[in-house]
Simulated assay, not measured.
Amino acid sequence: MSGRALVTGASSGIGAAIAREYARRGVPLILSARRVDRLEALAQELRGQIEVDVIAADLSSPDAPKALCEEIERRGLAVRILVNNAGYGVPGRYLKNDWKTHADFLQVMIGAVSELTWRLLPSIRAQGDGRILNVSSFAALMPAADGQTLYAPVKAFLVRFSEALSLENADRGVHATALCPGFTWSEFHDVTGTRDMMNRLPKRMWLQADDVARAGIDGVERGKTIVVPGLFYKTLYCLVRHLPDAWALKLMARNSSKIRRT
């Protein structure tokens, strides 16, 4: 296999787990995130297995995707696998935060993902067995929730985006997959300030980042468009898909209220 796997948001959580899994499979890496110290530590850990390049990027900047791709080209590297993992959550209802907070969020979650994919797709197609793994969320497959005004919709975009990319690029051997994990142990909830609340959830609802990474990579290699890791979430997804929309929305509204009260 030629070409590298570019993993955005690789400094921690699911992104770091995906990088480790690709390294275990012998795939050379390009790691990108804002926190260079974290990236360098991970790169040092993995360089005994594969070649690793580190490129810092803050994808909330509109100029970052182009600059990242230009640096990849300057270093003479080719991308065969793109993992759009960089992301975070903005807790609270829509009007709680200022517009700059929402604009930065949309740039990272939609703008950067779309532009990186557009810029790197020619290289991915040229490899003959290219892969695009978009890290979405189980929230994308559920009815909208109070307090997830933008998070769930942008994650749903990644699902439809992956489906369209799969259809458009199948003739060149490219597989695109939306990875839709539920609650996963990582720094995500520490960053959003919801760790105490999340710790009250049943253990069966929590996934390990390593398991999520393996499920996503296995899924994109098999050409699956949507991957839902974990038996609990697979079962829940099947149930929700067969509920009438009005019932599902009422169920989500009731549970959203419980979370807010907590």
Rank of each mutant, 00 (worst) to 15 (best):
S32P: 04
A41S: 15
A64G: 06
R34C: 07
L46K: 05
K66M: 13
E21T: 14
G26N: 09
L59P: 12
A41Q: 14
A41C: 07
L59T: 12
D37A: 13
G26D: 09
R34N: 03
R80I: 06
A57F: 02
L39P: 06
N85S: 06
R34Y: 04
V79N: 02
C69H: 08
I18R: 04
L82P: 10
A23D: 10
G89M: 04
K66H: 14
Y22K: 01
D63H: 12
L68G: 09
Q44M: 01
L77N: 07
R34A: 04
N84K: 02
V79R: 02
Q49D: 15
L29C: 07
L59R: 11
L29Y: 07
S60Q: 13
E51W: 03
P91M: 07
I30Y: 03
L42Q: 09
L68W: 10
L29D: 09
A56Y: 01
I55H: 11
V83H: 02
S32L: 01
L82K: 02
R20F: 00
V90N: 06
Y88V: 10
R20P: 12
R34V: 11
V27M: 08
I18A: 10
G15M: 01
E73M: 09
I81T: 15
G26Q: 06
R80W: 05
L59M: 04
I30V: 15
G89C: 01
I14A: 03
L77M: 10
R34E: 05
G26W: 02
P62N: 08
R24E: 15
D58R: 08
P65F: 11
Q49F: 06
V83R: 04
V83N: 11
D37E: 15
I30D: 02
L59Q: 10
L68S: 13
S61A: 15
D58L: 04
E73Y: 03
G48I: 09
V90M: 12
L77R: 14
R74G: 13
L39A: 10
A64F: 01
N84P: 10
E45Q: 12
N85G: 06
L68N: 12
E70T: 12
R38Y: 12
D63A: 15
R38G: 13
A41F: 11
R35H: 11
E73T: 15
A16D: 01
R35C: 06
E45G: 00
Y88I: 08
I72Y: 03
I30T: 12
E21H: 10
A43H: 00
D58N: 14
A57V: 05
I14W: 00
G26K: 01
Q44H: 13
L29G: 08
L59G: 13
L31M: 03
E45A: 02
V90S: 10
E73I: 12
L46R: 05
G15A: 05
R24F: 02
A86K: 06
V36N: 01
S61G: 13
V27E: 13
R75S: 07
L82E: 10
L42H: 01
A56D: 12
G15Y: 07
K66W: 11
P62G: 07
A67S: 11
G89R: 00
A19K: 04
D58E: 14
P62D: 08
A78W: 05
V36L: 14
V36G: 11
I72P: 03
G48L: 02
A78Q: 15
I50C: 09
R75C: 00
I55M: 14
A19W: 03
K66C: 10
